[in-house]
Amino acid sequence: MGSADSADRYLPDTVQESVKILVVGDFGVGKTTLIGSVSEIEPLRTEETMTQASVGVDDLAGLEGKATTTVAMDFGRITLSPYTALYLFGTPGQQRFWDLWAGLAEGAVGALVLIDTRRLEGSFEVLDQLEVRGDLPFAVAVNLFPDSRRYSESDLREALDLRPDTPIVECDARSRTSSMDCLITLVDHAFRKVSA
């Protein structure tokens, strides 16, 4: 979680390079939670309370306790070294907000696609959006909710129609260590693709 110390809000003067990552996924998969678990600053959140207007529009099956939703983006930061900072931009999951993706994707080195195996069908359109963008490397992170069914990597790869080189990792978006491991996997994959 973000630090209460105001000195931590500012980057050291030595930081000369920034890396931008998108965190994308279907509605309710844990994008806001993941960014909150790793950000060294209090994350910027654009969450709004869900109202009756979303009934019949947002699929709340399996998300009965969900009361808020991201309507623009989430933003967090991790200082990787005295010279490099990682900026995380979480996108809204609902299709009606996907026009925001184009601007958020500009300059990103890659995208971490968070999925929920309890609601796997919602990931298909998210992956289609990444394919439309074509050149943005991505990795898939399976957020393991307590009641999630586990699938083998090969079954997930086939169900999601992923290329053989697309990384798939499991994570607990609430855990800083687990979420950091997912981000490291994505960054490694993105830099390998750029180098190839």
Rank of each mutant, 00 (worst) to 15 (best):
D116A: 01
S123Q: 07
A159L: 03
D128Y: 11
D147P: 15
E131F: 08
P137E: 12
V140Y: 15
P137R: 03
E131A: 13
P137N: 04
L130D: 00
E158Y: 08
L114W: 09
E125T: 13
D155S: 10
G122T: 00
F124A: 10
E121G: 06
L156H: 08
V140W: 13
R133M: 01
L136H: 04
E153F: 05
G122W: 08
L127H: 03
E125N: 11
S154A: 12
R133A: 11
E125K: 13
D147R: 14
A141G: 13
L130C: 00
V113L: 15
L160S: 03
E158L: 10
L114R: 10
G134Q: 03
T117E: 13
E153R: 14
D147E: 06
L160G: 07
V113K: 08
R157A: 01
L112P: 00
E153Y: 08
L144R: 09
E158I: 05
D161Y: 11
D155H: 15
D128H: 05
F124H: 04
R150I: 06
S152K: 13
N143K: 06
D116C: 02
P146D: 09
G134M: 04
D135Q: 14
T117I: 04
D155G: 01
R149G: 15
F145R: 14
V140H: 13
E125M: 13
V132L: 07
L120Y: 11
S123I: 01
F124Y: 13
L162F: 02
E121T: 02
R118L: 01
L144N: 15
R150Y: 10
L130N: 00
L160C: 02
P137Y: 00
F145G: 02
E131L: 14
G134R: 12
R150F: 06
I115N: 09
L136D: 02
E125D: 12
E158P: 00
F124R: 15
E153H: 14
V113A: 15
L160H: 03
L144H: 06
L160I: 05
F145P: 12
D147A: 09
R119E: 03
F138C: 01
P137K: 07
L144T: 02
P137I: 06
